[in-house]
Design a protein around this nucleic acid. Sequence first.
DNA 1: ATAGAGATTAACCAAATAGTCAAAAAAACT
DNA 2: AGTTTTTTTGACTATTTGGTTAATCTCTAT
Lengths: 210, 210
Amino acid sequence: MSEAKKESKQGKIRAQSEAKILAAAQEEFILQGYRGATVQSIADRAGLPKANILYYFKNKENIYHAVLEQTLDMWDEGIGDIDAADGPKVAIEKFIASKVRMSFKHPSASKIYAMEIIQGAQHLKEFARTYLRKWVRDKAALFQTWIDNGEMAEVDPYNLIFLIWSTTQHYADFETQILTVMNRADYEQEDEEQVTQFLTDFILRGCGLK
Amino acid sequence: MSEAKKESKQGKIRAQSEAKILAAAQEEFILQGYRGATVQSIADRAGLPKANILYYFKNKENIYHAVLEQTLDMWDEGIGDIDAADGPKVAIEKFIASKVRMSFKHPSASKIYAMEIIQGAQHLKEFARTYLRKWVRDKAALFQTWIDNGEMAEVDPYNLIFLIWSTTQHYADFETQILTVMNRADYEQEDEEQVTQFLTDFILRGCGLK
DNA sequence: ATAGAGATTAACCAAATAGTCAAAAAAACT
DNA sequence: AGTTTTTTTGACTATTTGGTTAATCTCTAT
C-alpha cells in the first residue's frame, strides 16, 4: 500500500528536483572537478538554495555517486551491443554508430567518465574489474571467432576495441579542442553523420572488411 | 657578474626543488584535480614543508601554470613532426611511433593535458587557437596533397589526425582502465612495441597504404 | 671571519566551504 | 478542516586551506 509511494505523487517533486540537481552537478563536476564544484555552485546552477540540495542528497559525495551512476546507466544503454548474428561488418557498423551517437548526444556523460578514469578510477574500479572486463573479454572472443573463420583481417581484438572506444569518445571528451581547432562554435547535425561515415569507412578498411 | 648566478651554484638548489615540486604537483593535480590538490598535499608528496613550496612558487595557480607549461614543452618535443619529404607511409609511421612513445613514457603529461581540455581548456584556449590550429591545418594540407597525388586513399585529413591522436593518447589517459580490463598491474616494455605495431598496421591499412 | 643573499620552517590568519538545525511553508492525506 | 508528511530556507558552525610573516639557518664571496 505504502510501497508505491515513491512512484506516485510524492515522487514527482523529488524526481524533478533531483534531476535538476544532477544536471547542474554534472556540469559543475566537469568544469571544476569534484573538489572544485562547491555545493553552493551546484545550487546556483540548479537555481535552488544550498540547503535544499543537501536535503535531497545527504552530502556532496552522494551527489557525485548519483552523477556517476547516471553516467554508467547511460553507458550501458548507449553501448550498442555487438550482436554475434550480425557478422563482423554490420556489428562493427552498428557499434561505431551507437558510440558516435552517444558522444554527440551526451558529451557530458563521456567527460565525467573520462575524468574519473584519468584520475585513477577511484569510484569505477569495481565496475571496470567486473562488468567492463567481462564485456571486453566476450566481445574480443567474438572478434577472434570471426578472425579464425576468415571473416575479417587478423587484428588484435583488444586493441581494436580500444581503438573504437578512443576514436568515438574523442569527439565528446575533446569537443573543446576539436571545435577550437576547426574554428567552430558548436557541432552541427551533419557532423555526427560525417564522423560516423569517416570512422566506419576507416575502421572497416582497417579490419579488411571493405 | 651577478647575471650568471641563476645558472651557477645558487640555481642548483632552486632548480632541484622546483623540479621536485613540479613532479609532485603534477601527480596531485591528476589524482585530485586543481582544486582538490592542496598545497599541503603537494608539499607532502615532494617531502618539503608547505611554506617552502610557496617560497618557490608564489601561489597555487603559479604551480599549475608551471606544470602546464612543462606539459606543453613535452608535447612540443614529442609531437614527432610530420615530414613532407618522407611521403605518407613513413610520415605516418614516424608520427604514430612518437605519439605512442610519448603515451608510454610520459602518461602523466598526457593526462594533465586531457583533463585540461575536458574541463573546457580554460588555460589552453590560446594554445589551441593559435599554435595547435595552425599545426593541424598545415598537416591536414600535407595529407591532402598526398591524397590529390594519389599517394594515399581519400580520407578526411582532419579526422585522420584526430584518429591518430585519440588512439595513441588513449593508452596514456585510460591507462587505468586498460590495465584493469587486461587484469594487469603495469605496462610491460613490449606493450609499447605491440601497440605501435597494431596501430601502424591498422592505420596504414585504413589509409590504403598497406 | 663576516656580510649578505638565499633557503627553511613554525606559527598564524582570513576566507571559503561542507554540513547542521530549527522553524516555517506547502502539499498530501483523512 | 485538521493532521501529518514533505519541502524550503536562512542562519550558524567546525574545519580546511591558501597564503603571510618573521625568525632562523645555510651558503657563498670577499
